[in-house]
């Protein structure tokens, strides 16, 4: 990953910062500056709670370059408590124990390695909510 690209998406990846629409109050992730619901300008930052539940998931056995070391790993679409769906890996859980509807929370982990000398890319993953 390129250094500039890393830094310009840091708030999203580290803190799950999206936007809130001043017109319809819809919560938006990732940030896109135009509300997908009412199509009005929406540039107000909004930090998501990081809590949600599994909408769907898949264990990936054939990874793209940069992700081979972690294979197999489980990816999911998470329905955030504030509304939007977000895609991310699941962590701290056995692949066999994942289920649709399972409550999860955001944590920060290494997403990918760009070779032996390249950057470690950090970002959000989700784990089961600790009771």
């Amino acid at each position: 990953m390129e250094v500039a690209r890393y830094w310009r998406t840091t708030r999203q990846r580290y803190q799950l910062v999206g936007e809130v629409c001043p017109n319809c109050s819809g919560k938006i992730f990732p940030p896109r500056d135009v509300c997908p619901t009412c199509e009005k300008e929406a540039k107000t930052p909004f930090a998501f709670s990081g809590v949600g539940e599994v909408y769907s998931y898949s264990t990936v056995y054939q990874a793209a370059a940069g992700y081979e070391k972690a294979t197999p790993y489980t990816v999911a679409m998470i329905r955030l408590a504030e509304g939007p769906l977000v895609s991310a890996q699941l962590t701290d859980i056995d692949d066999k124990d994942v289920a649709i509807g399972m409550p999860v929370e955001m944590v920060t982990r290494v997403l990918r390695e760009d070779g032996d000398r390249g950057m470690l890319v950090y970002g959000y993953k989700f784990r089961p909510v600790m009771v």
Binding site: R5, S56, Y57, S58, V60, Q62, I100
Partner: peptide, 24 residues
């Protein structure tokens, strides 16, 4: 690229999640 592939999702991984949700 920034919000699906960066998370380790592949084209097939997204297709698989659609299939699982459809089955559900």
């Amino acid at each position: 690229a920034d919000y699906e592939a960066m998370q380790g999702l592949t084209h097939m991984g997204v297709g698989a999640m659609l299939m699982r949700r459809y089955m559900h």
